[in-house]
Design a protein around this nucleic acid. Structure first.
Lengths: 342, 342
DNA sequence: AAGTAATATGATAACGATATCATAAATAAA
DNA sequence: TTTATTTATGATATCGTTATCATATTACTT
């Protein structure tokens, strides 16, 4: 009653056929007489046989597995992407090995090598830029494994890339603020973030359409994307200069920090100041519900997986490099309003 | 420049040794002369050799992989557990295959069978009870695979179980409310949830210590654990009966729904009513910051993984069944206050 | 110097499946 | 009937490693 470990050999013997015949019967592939197949299937069922996927993988050189590298699965942004990848994978009969790199390059290297050793058929990653990233991604590709970058560093090489129309999303949001009459709009971005830089581009474009320019003093650079950082920078900004009529934070956590600081300072949103965020994970649940640029993480994950499976099926080098965009939408809620009429 | 696919055979040939010797050198196992090892390692490095883990797994019957089944990775509660499992696994050189069942029993069966086919060395699950769950869990166990239940259905069999001291956590929270002078305390639970039933037990115990009883009318059963459900039930309750002086929702989403309903009804928390939640995922970020019973999901995941690896190492049947508790703590914030003095 | 133990290496088998090929039986075509 | 084709089955090789065992070499003991 301990371990059973039924192999196809047992199934074949019990059914009175050879191993290859049993294999064909179970796989439903090639020529097998109807009654033979039934005998084999019955035998398999009786013995409680479960295919050994490890052996199959070795022989067929297909592991039906892909790897996904992200910074941290407890970050809902990445969890959304992960879920999209998992769903597409599940439908195709694949598994995804999901690993956290905690933005640690040493871990990144370890994990990518692990992916290679495990002979994953493809890799998706969503990690920010790092000097050593390009190198290790190149190694993965040299091992014949297609790589898709999903909202990760655009500076690292990949077969295909999925990102949002980040500058357009922010363009729309800024246009919306401008149309509400706001002119003194502050932007809270994270220093060193390539995506945030592109977000700011979109905002500048909107200003230009109004014949205006973003005031450099109103572009604030946070050290990181934590709530605390948003809180701190807001406090500092409001202590130093005139309060802007609207604030656009390029990240939801930052926006939550702004919200908290504003509350403490007695600034009522949206009456005293409008606020826009990005991400749209908790936005609807905040007080007030936050107007924000929604990132369709689930769709991004699905798209990345689809691109990857295209390459897995067609052979990596058959296809040209593709760059797919998912649409970031402005969701208008209660944290924005018309500018003061003074 | 296409696929390289370097095997240990190539490494051995280039180093001028036999394959088994190369294997020993690379694994750092058994007798290998110092210079031989160096030759092999150099050869491996030059060729860009990466061990084929599939082949190794087949031979050693160790896949260094475990499976984790959860309802949905985008739910931060499960993401926390997943992260704990992943971290312990990573440290041990294992991978976790994480799969969502969406509370669908058909998927559950498919996924558990997939775990068996993939020859995972252990399985952890966090899924609610379902008639067919016991059956499939039993099949997994019969295949010699240890199973650990982490905050899942306690009615399904498993080698080991990890849960929180759920009734104690709620006992503490209720004691706190009682000590603040509250007597009309409403409880919002989810119908059919075994864990929520145990939570209520803890609350009742606290009442008994005060020589009181929970009023049955003040135990409200929600259909599910969504924010909407919390919102709806609050509206209904407040329309029908006298408003309680405190409300205890056994789930954060429910509590957020209560918060929203209260806001709409002009009920100020905590002045007009105290509110306590469970989970403590976003609690700190809500307005007002929510007093709640914190579930240490990350720790629970780590604990579950540790239990599992004990069995993986020691052999499944060597160890007695263990039930580990992680401590749920009451975090006091701004949503609770003294009862009215009327 | 002889015997024993430790070290080092390789030949062979095995893990559990599928791929490839050869051959036999059944069926269709001439 | 003969030949060609389709269907059915099994023998054998193979995927890339490690386990097991046998043997050769070196290093210690006495």
């Amino acid at each position: 009653m301990e371990k059973k470990n039924v192999t196809i050999k047992d199934v074949a013997r019990k059914a009175g056929v050879s191993v290859p015949t049993a294999s064909r019967a179970l796989a439903g592939y090639g020529y097998v007489k109807r009654e033979t197949r039934e005998k084999v299937l019955k035998s398999a069922k009786n013995l409680g046989y479960q295919l050994n996927f490890v052996a199959k993988s070795l022989r067929t050189r297909k592991t039906q597995t892909i790897g996904y590298l992200l910074p941290d699965i407890t970050n809902p942004f990445y969890a959304g992407i992960a879920r999209g990848i998992q769903d597409v994978s599940f439908t195709r009969g694949y598994n995804a090995i999901i690993c956290n790199n905690d933005n640690d390059i040493l871990k990144t290297q370890q994990l990518f090598k692990m992916f290679i050793r495990n002979r994953v058929e493809g890799v998706i990653y969503s990690v920010p830029f790092n000097e050593a990233l390009s190198e290790i991604v190149e190694i993965v590709k040299n091992n014949g494994i297609p790589v898709v970058n999903c909202y990760g560093s655009t500076r690292a090489p990949a077969s295909d890339v999925v990102t949002g129309n980040v500058s357009e999303g922010c363009y729309k949001a800024t246009m919306y603020l401008l149309e509400l009459g706001h002119r003194d709009i502050a932007f809270l971005k994270v220093r060193g973030s390539g995506i945030n830089a592109r977000r700011l581009e979109g905002c500048k474009k909107a200003f230009e359409e109004f014949g205006l320019h973003v005031h450099p003093n109103l572009v604030i650079e946070a050290d990181d994307f934590t709530q605390h950082s948003g809180y701190l920078n807001t406090k500092i900004m409001f202590a130093q200069s005139k309060r802007p009529s609207a604030l656009f934070a390029f990240n939801e956590r930052l926006a939550m920090g702004v919200l908290k600081a504003a509350k403490e300072l007695g600034i009522v949103i949206p009456n005293d100041m409008s606020l826009i965020g990005v991400d749209d994970i908790m936005a609807e649940l905040l007080e007030p519900p936050l107007t924000s640029v929604a990132i369709p993480t689930y769709e991004a994950g699905r798209t990345a997986a689809s691109l990857l499976f295209n390459r897995v099926e067609k052979g990596n080098n058959e296809l040209p490099v593709r760059h797919m965009l998912v649409e970031e939408l402005l969701k208008i809620r209660a944290s924005t309003g018309k500018a003061d009429q003074e």
